[in-house]
Simulated scan of single mutants.
Amino acid sequence: MKSLFIVLEGVDKAGKSTQAELLKNYFLSHQHSAVISSEPTDGPIGRLIRKAMQNKILAIEQKESFDEQMAYLFTADRHYHLYNDLNGVYKLINKDYTHVIATRYYFSSLAYNCNTPNEFVFVSTLNRNFPEPDVVFYIDISLESALSRLSKYPLKEIYETKKKLKQVIQNYENIFKSYKGRILKLDGTESIQKIHQKILIYLRENFGDF
């Protein structure tokens, strides 16, 4: 079985981090090297993005311009995520023979940084040269479920509003309707273990036993 680049996508609090951790532990327990590699990264641009998302630095107050700024920053951080020589995705896969499980990839930029068809073209162009992952697992939850889960966390990021998340969920639906790569849509309201088992079944059916 070759080393895989696996992406987990979904709106905030859909359960991406939980499923990434379960999958990593499963790989490790079956003698496969695996890491979780999230976006934004812990690199210099990723740290800047995190501060901007938490309103800890002055960015751009106008919403449309802020989304454009974030799209540029995420593109630069994504290049670092894939290709840096320390722990870049393709260094891990091709040299270290490690499965890479990413929570978020360019699909998140399309979902979070686009509000109009023109913006979708703009962000798609920024990300057009990035390679496709081996598989995407999209964890789908409703707007109501997302807001309910977010209400349990006192600290909110800039995109964690009802209006924004409604747009994000619709964007995800549009993105994955036309996506040609391997993708499995999962019901994020099912139990954690049931979602995990569906992920494992899909991987076995498409990439062999492990």
Rank of each mutant, 00 (worst) to 15 (best):
residue 30 H to S: 05
residue 153 Y to T: 12
residue 36 I to F: 02
residue 65 S to K: 13
residue 164 K to I: 13
residue 54 Q to F: 02
residue 156 K to N: 10
residue 111 A to F: 00
residue 146 A to N: 01
residue 146 A to Q: 01
residue 35 V to Q: 07
residue 160 E to T: 07
residue 106 Y to P: 06
residue 207 F to Q: 09
residue 93 I to K: 09
residue 40 P to Y: 06
residue 58 L to M: 08
residue 20 A to I: 00
residue 37 S to M: 06
residue 58 L to Q: 13
residue 130 F to Q: 10
residue 30 H to A: 09
residue 190 E to H: 10
residue 185 K to T: 13
residue 102 A to T: 13
residue 146 A to G: 03
residue 172 Y to D: 02
residue 117 P to E: 11
residue 194 K to D: 05
residue 208 G to P: 01
residue 98 T to H: 06
residue 73 L to P: 15
residue 188 G to Y: 00
residue 136 V to D: 05
residue 155 L to K: 13
residue 47 R to S: 14
residue 170 Q to I: 03
residue 57 I to A: 11
residue 87 N to D: 15
residue 21 E to W: 03
residue 70 M to T: 14
residue 141 I to A: 03
residue 117 P to L: 04
residue 17 S to L: 05
residue 13 K to S: 10
residue 96 D to C: 08
residue 8 L to C: 03
residue 192 I to Q: 12
residue 37 S to F: 00
residue 60 I to S: 05
residue 158 I to Q: 11
residue 61 E to I: 13
residue 207 F to C: 11
residue 141 I to F: 03
residue 183 I to M: 14
residue 90 Y to K: 06
residue 95 K to C: 00
residue 83 Y to S: 01
residue 112 Y to G: 03
residue 110 L to W: 03
residue 159 Y to R: 05
residue 185 K to N: 14
residue 173 E to M: 09
residue 91 K to M: 09
residue 120 F to P: 00
residue 90 Y to Q: 02
residue 74 F to S: 00
residue 82 L to N: 03
residue 193 Q to M: 12
residue 162 K to E: 12
residue 46 G to H: 06
